[in-house]
Write a protein that binds this DNA or RNA. Structure first.
Lengths: 244, 244
DNA sequence: AATTATTGTCTTTCAAAAAGACAATAATTG
DNA sequence: CAATTATTGTCTTTTTGAAAGACAATAATT
């Protein structure tokens, strides 16, 4: 949400986009969550509005870039959230109460507040990225952005926690078909690293021998040289995604 | 679309819902498409807007009921359509040109037209119904409603044809898991009828023996008495969906 | 009673997934 | 430098599940 200048006709009214960005680090699946730069603990998914002359997919990419600095990420719709009671009202009231002076600084007037506190329908998008490729930079309302393990989320505003869980379900359903995991690994990697990634996403173990076969049979990996780790064992091969 | 009184603040702006309703008849999958009651051949999916105090799922059901008379149908979201150029403008201009006098009758003024011809984001919903249970009644802008086989669609406005194809893809992906086919069959039916339904939806044949096993193994059917058809062969059993 | 078309179910075949087995390393140890 | 160790790459076997084939059991007709 860009709180600075949501002038009525610049954006579509009462429609927003929320982004669930999954990343992978330390063999764990994590979610990117900014903390808002206001007094009080407000964590919210990267979100924003749709400009009048902008595709919704474009808007999702722009919002993600503005809030986090992430560019060129493939985002995918997973669900629309639109119950009648779904509004920023409760959250904004708490924010206003805790930040009586700061609101002026942000250029927040009653008009803007009224615009923001109406009932909102939100389109949920999700993506997968490689945490190590990511250069985070905070947006203008985000004090700090952090990766949280999916089992250790902070307390999120509105229905953002539900959004994360539904995004995760969708990711698990689609992972094999769409190979979205592409984004999550470094340029080159071992099969074992792919397996650890899958195990983090599905939160369950896979059999080593069969996992290797399943992945290699897909013919999407290109085998490179061996990777010598210095350990007392056979060195694994390093792979990268085939260009096609 | 209720063209009669889309007062600005009664509905969420620039957000609509389109319904793709699949029905089954004569061993064919069909789609419910109303023809608009204007001069000129305007076919459009049952569509409408979301009231301020209404869940989007509720809105979808209301819209479907208003436009077609279908009540208590389980609808499911399948996609949001939201390219920047997506608007009613072209279609409305053609409609206005062909219906210079009729617009007054409908209470369409320039203000309303302006509201309608902006860029719209639309949430696609789909459902499956039993054509024989359906009692169609036209909404106030629909001259007639008809079921069209999915291979013989009329020429639809905007991106409605694309919507139908994406809805069909989603249906095929989800049919087994969600058993939405529930709605499509009469109260009691034979396995063969279920098979014909599947064959209509997937547009391909299934092996009789294995299909029977696959369906019965799911344990969702309750076997009733036999069905004597008067034909010179063994009578099939009649089933119904288990209540649970 | 023989014939016919179709159903319900069993068996066999084929294919894919899961589990098991083992040789080939790449270092370390003594 | 041979024995040891941990891990990888791959093959074989087992299990499971889907596809195909086979056939008896009808319910009416001839």
């Amino acid at each position: 949400m860009n709180l600075k200048s949501p002038r009525e006709q610049e954006y579509i009214q009462q429609l927003s986009i929320d982004c669930v960005i999954f990343g992978y680090e330390d063999e764990q699946l994590k979610v990117l969550i900014p903390k808002l730069d206001f007094t009080g603990d407000f964590w919210a998914l990267p979100a924003g509005f749709i400009q009048q002359e902008e595709d919704i997919d474009e808007a999702a990419r722009r919002i993600l870039a503005e809030r986090t600095g992430l560019a060129d990420i493939y985002l995918e719709q997973f669900r629309v959230f639109g119950t009648a009671k779904r509004s920023n009202k409760t959250f904004m009231e708490r924010l206003v109460a805790l930040n009586p002076t700061k609101l002026d600084d942000w250029g927040l007037d009653l008009n803007t507040l009224g615009w923001l506190t109406r009932r909102f329908v939100s389109i949920g998008y999700y993506a997968l990225v490689d945490i190590h490729k990511v250069n985070l930079q905070k947006g203008n309302i985000d004090a700090s952005i952090q990766w949280y393990p999916i089992r250790e989320l902070p307390s999120l505003i509105m229905d953002h926690e539900e959004m994360i869980h539904i995004a995760l379900d969708t990711l698990r359903l689609n992972l094999d078909q769409k190979l979205i995991a592409y984004n999550l690994l470094p340029e080159t990697f071992t099969i074992k690293e792919v397996q650890e990634l899958y195990e983090a996403i599905y939160e369950r173990p896979f059999a080593r021998n069969n996992f290797q076969k399943k992945i290699l049979d897909q013919q999407v990996l290109e085998r490179l040289e061996k990777k010598f780790t210095g350990a007392a064992n056979k060195a694994p091969y390093v792979y990268r995604w085939k260009r096609y």
